[in-house]
Amino acid sequence: MQDAAVRELREETGLIASGPPRLLSVHSNHRFFPNDHVLVFAVDAFAVGARTSHGEISNAEWFAPDALPEGVTAATQRRLDEIFTGAPSDPLW
């Protein structure tokens, strides 16, 4: 899981983890795919490199948690609330 998180981080954002990612939470996501799970990791230190994949994510941008762009999904907002405000973790995505 950690290797996949580091690889995807580099491919999709160009960020190169300087240490192992920390698993924050695991969520069931059965709405679109049966038996799908989403894992949320934190990366505390990283270097900036070039994206190596441009297939899944069209843009990667930074936003303050209280200044997110329109259209953020409810699930994404819940994860951010769990991380930044201490909201209880929901096992469902």
Rank of each mutant, 00 (worst) to 15 (best):
D81K: 09
F46H: 15
W93I: 02
L9I: 11
P20D: 13
P21Q: 15
H30N: 11
P34M: 01
D66Q: 11
H27N: 12
T73R: 15
L80V: 02
W62I: 03
L68E: 15
G49D: 12
F32L: 09
L15C: 01
G86D: 02
A47R: 14
L92S: 05
L9A: 08
N29R: 14
A75N: 13
L92F: 06
G14D: 06
P65L: 12
E12S: 04
R22D: 15
P21A: 03
H27I: 04
V72D: 10
R22S: 15
G86F: 07
R22T: 15
A75L: 11
L15H: 11
N59M: 08
E8H: 07
V6I: 11
G71D: 05
D44V: 12
E56T: 12
H54I: 06
A64E: 14
V40C: 08
N35M: 04
Q2A: 03
L24C: 06
R31Q: 08
S18Q: 15
A74W: 05
I57W: 04
V72L: 09
P65A: 12
R7L: 08
T85N: 05
V72S: 10
G49S: 06
D90I: 00
T76S: 09
F33P: 04
P34N: 12
M1T: 03
H37Q: 14
P20Y: 03
I16A: 09
V48Y: 10
E12M: 07
F41Q: 07
T73M: 01
L24Y: 13
F46M: 02
Q2T: 02
G55Q: 02
T52D: 03
G14V: 08
V72P: 03
G14T: 06
E56A: 15
L68Q: 14
M1W: 06
L9D: 03
L39V: 05
F41C: 07
A67G: 14
G71H: 03
G55I: 08
L15W: 07
E8C: 09
F33K: 13
V38P: 07
R78M: 08
F32R: 04
V26P: 07
E56H: 15
D66G: 01
F84D: 05
E56Q: 12
H27A: 05
T73I: 00
V72K: 02
V48Q: 14
D44A: 14
F32K: 11
D36E: 13
R51L: 09
P69W: 11
R51V: 06
G71C: 07
D44E: 15
V72H: 02
P88N: 01
A64G: 06
M1Q: 04
D3K: 01
T73Q: 09
R31A: 06
V43N: 15
G86S: 03
W62Y: 10
R22P: 02
D66A: 12
R78V: 08
F32E: 10
R7Q: 13
S58L: 07
F84M: 05
F84Q: 08
A74K: 10
M1N: 01
E8A: 09
A50K: 04
A67K: 15
F46W: 15
E61P: 06
A4W: 00
T52P: 01
T52W: 00
A87M: 03
V38I: 12
A60R: 04
H30I: 03
A42V: 13
R10G: 09
G71Y: 01
F84C: 07
F63R: 14
P91Q: 01
T13W: 05
M1A: 15
S18V: 12
R7F: 04
A60K: 02
P91E: 02
A50G: 04
V43T: 14
P20Q: 13
